[in-house]
Every structure is written in C-alpha cells, then in structure tokens.
C-alpha cells in the first residue's frame, strides 16, 4: 500500500512527510519529526501523555491517524514556550508549584491545561479536575498540578481580572 504525503504545521513549522496511512500522529511526531516531547504511555487513548492540540483542540495523538492532521495546525509541548528563556505561564506554574515529578505525563498534562484555560480562563477547582480527567499521573496525586493550573489562570488573566 502506498504511502500518503501529508503537509502538517507543527508549532508553526511546516512539514511535508510521506507516511504509511495507518500510522498515528504520535508516532509521526516522535519518529519522523523527532518531536519526542509527546509521550506514548498507553497507545490506547486512556492516559493522556500523548495529548496535542489540533487546530486548538486537545486530542489523543496515539488514536489520531497522522493523515487526518493533513493541512491542520498541530501544537505539541515543544511549541508552547516562546523561547527557552520565556516559558508559557502554565509551564512556569508547573515548575514553581512542584507539579512535575517523573515528568512523563507532564507534556500531555500541560497541553490539556492549555485547552482548558483557552476555553475557560478562570476555572474552578472542580472544573480543573474535570479538565484533567483524561490525563493520568502516577506520581503527584494531582493536587500540585491542580494548584499550578489555578496559578497559571491567575498569571494569564488580564490585569484587574481574576485575582
């Protein structure tokens, strides 16, 4: 069976790759584009470590066929910080609040947090917990992650809003 050529924009960079149509977006990101920040924890859509944004929506990249991302905009964990010096506020909050331990779930967790805050800039604790329910973490017990996202929401709020 023939390979299909896809064009995808990942973190603002355009790529053209010829791939087997059955391969997942997670595999193509990791193996072809060498963007290994997207992790495969279960390859079954249950753990969330492979979460990326496609046109701004969070998806499990292990269950997404790469061909379905053709001509779409993909954002991975590598694309979130403006520069190595300037982290995204969610990333800063994760660092400072101790929301990272082994780090394997972290990238996917942050992408889910990004999706959540994009849709709901001032979430309640319950809403944060719901927003993270597709991302498993075995190290932290989630509390520091929840705290970090609350903190990031405050950092992201325009002056005068939130608290």
């Amino acid at each position: 069976m023939a390979k299909q050529t896809i064009e995808i924009t990942v973190n603002g960079d355009r790529y053209e790759v010829a791939i087997d149509p059955w391969r997942s977006l997670a595999e193509v990101l990791r193996e072809d584009l060498r963007l290994t920040g997207t992790k495969i924890g279960c390859n079954q859509g249950d753990c969330g470590a492979c979460t990326v944004l496609i046109n701004g929506r969070s998806v499990s990249s292990c269950l997404t066929l790469a061909v379905e991302a053709h001509q779409r905009e993909v954002t991975t964990i590598e694309g979130l910080a403006k520069s190595p010096q300037e982290l995204h506020p969610i990333q800063e909050a994760f660092v400072e609040k101790g929301a990272v331990q082994c780090g394997f779930c972290t990238g996917g967790m942050i992408m889910s947090a990004k999706q959540l805050l994009d849709k709901n800039p001032q979430p309640t604790e319950t809403e944060i917990r719901q927003g993270l329910s597709g991302n498993l973490c075995r190290c932290t017990g989630y509390n520091k992650i929840v705290e970090a996202i609350g903190d990031a929401a405050r950092r992201l709020a325009p002056a005068g809003e939130g608290k």
Binding site: G45, G131, N135
Partner: peptide, 9 residues
Amino acid sequence: MATTQIRNM
C-alpha cells in the same frame, strides 16, 4: 463520558 480528548475527537 470518556475524557476531554476523546470527547473532542
């Protein structure tokens, strides 16, 4: 049902 990511897909 399911998770945010699955509901988005």
